[in-house]
Design a binder for these strands. Sequence first.
DNA 1: GGCTCAGGGCCAATA
DNA 2: TATTGGCCCTGAGCC
Length: 663
Amino acid sequence: MVLSTSCKSNNKATSGRPRRDRSELLRTLPPCRVCKEAASGFHYGVNTCEACKGFFRRALKHGSTFTCKFNQSCNVTGTARTLCSFCRFQRCLAVGMSTNAIKVGRYTHEARTRNIIEVKFLAKQKEGDHHVTETPPLIWPHGEDATSRPDASHHGTLTGVDLGPAEHRRREQSQGCARGQPEITRSPSYLSGVPLEPGVPGSAAYKCEHPVSFLEAESTVDYTNCKQTYFMEDSGYSQNSELSFLEELGQGHGTQEYTNNSVFPENGSYSYISCQGDGMTPFCYGEDYKFAHDFQETFLYNQTMKCDFPTPDLYESAPCSDSKHFPSHPPSCVRQRSSSPALLSRMEQLLKETSVYNGDVLLKEHVAVMMQFQQENARKSTGSLLKRSSGVTDDLDAVITRLVESHDRLILVSTYFPDDFISDKLKSHSKLCSMREHVIGQLPELSDEQYLDMYKSTGIDMDGRVNNMKVNIGYFESFLRSLIKFAKSLPGFKALPLDDQTQLLKASYADFWFLGTYRGYNSDLNSVIMPNGHCFHRNDLYKTFDRKWVDSSFQLAEVFQRRPIDPHQLVIVKSLLLTLTDRCTVLNPRAVEDIQDLLLACLRRQLSVTSAGHALSHLIGESLNKLTLIRPLSSLDKQNLQKRIFVEHMTGRPLIREMLSSV
DNA sequence: GGCTCAGGGCCAATA
DNA sequence: TATTGGCCCTGAGCC
Ligand SMILES: [Zn+2]
Ligand SMILES: [Zn+2]
């Protein structure tokens, strides 16, 4: 006999109190966010069923510690939810259940309206178009997690209206769209021979309390300020609401260029050619980086007007007398004479600047200049690559060019940081750290819990970890947005089923992040400079992230730094990452392999250009081997979810939550 | 102040 | 026996 959580009618003629038929209310509720069965209401900040509500309450009450016997990615939908408490609880947290999100009292019109719209949409989706997204998104673009909390209700510009009880009665019944997890079928991928990393020991104990109030004000601001609004306008809303955050972002909502209303990805391979807007849209690093963004747009505009580039010999490593301006590593396409004088002089100033960026106005400028720098490079490599290419390799070269251009426009990386720039910044940062210690003295050893509790009661952020966390998480979110855009710019990626796009992104973002940041790590100084210019001491990172993850990052960065990678090759390898199916399940493996094949061809081509004389297969193998080195980072990254401060800052950032939720 | 609706208690069903 | 989940009461909070 199977337990049923479906909503039976609730009219057990109790004590005669006249109530509006509860089943009416239930009809206007989206399915349980945790298990996808019929929700009974809004519990702990999320629409859930009675069962999941009770489960979460008991977990909090008893302070339960769960362990997962498998891979921390068990199916918790439907009746399978009882099979693994760990994963069920993890899912509860992932969808945003929290004691701080408790809402009491009746619905606001807005909240009710949102529910109605969602239910309507689900019903519609059920009728047709199963092929668009078979799985409901993990988190809804307009989900209650972000918008319907009392303190967040002002976000979003929904124009649907709660028409009142009469209209509610007319609403058709919706049953949600519960669906079992797809069968796990590992598709043969290029890296399928690579041993999967053993699952993270499932010994994790969750602290069952997730107060978030002190963060909410901060974290919600982001959404309203960001151009990439999650809350769509009238017309776009119903058409796009089936997209999860991951999917939706890449569609380019909120950017001015966006005009295509269709949720269907463009068909046809190599859509990068036809989608000059998407994927090539300049990045958006949130309000913090608005300056950078404006800066960059102006720059791009000016460049478009000119469009006449010198043609540097890309792969001839020129002796750079003033190498101070540019990275001595990597050597290739970054050359002084190919950058505009204004930019050069600004970069020079930045490099001379010895102050530490953190908390400094300079940070914004850093981002702007680096971004501009990357873009100039991207443009220049375009010109030269097209000139050098000939014959059958034309196409591949063009693909490579596009990849690099798109990547460097969208993703802020530390790849182009000059060596001495990194060490200068880190040295001054270290100095600052020791000065701080000298002035403030050693702080008392507090556990994470104690620190956060103290912070919450006093508002004092003694060692600045809360602030660091805010900065990091904001930057990370911007990164994810850019990553999604970049992925969409990969030839053929947009044509994949949206589910597959999501899976691939979720499986690779951590590695992708690492490859863009590893250059900033310095094990001797025990600190790192992030692509946005922020510096962190290793000890500071321990406070906000999982220790093992931090250590592994430092360790792997050392390995990667030993041998410089050609920036173009790096971009191709990063793109390849997005096509690895060894740790996720895709519906259309063939299509993914097609992309992968193309990228491998690009890699081969690139290696043949840059390293004449070496055995190509050896180099490719080496290149891919390096990839396997960093794969463990992905699962270590999940360990950050054990950090209360991390989890708390994640609340209210649905994109991050979705990205980190189990594949 | 009336009406709604979520939290939490309760307890039968189930594993 | 421990856990699950359906049901109901109470009271908070919207209108
Ligand atoms: Zn549920
Ligand atoms: Zn599990």
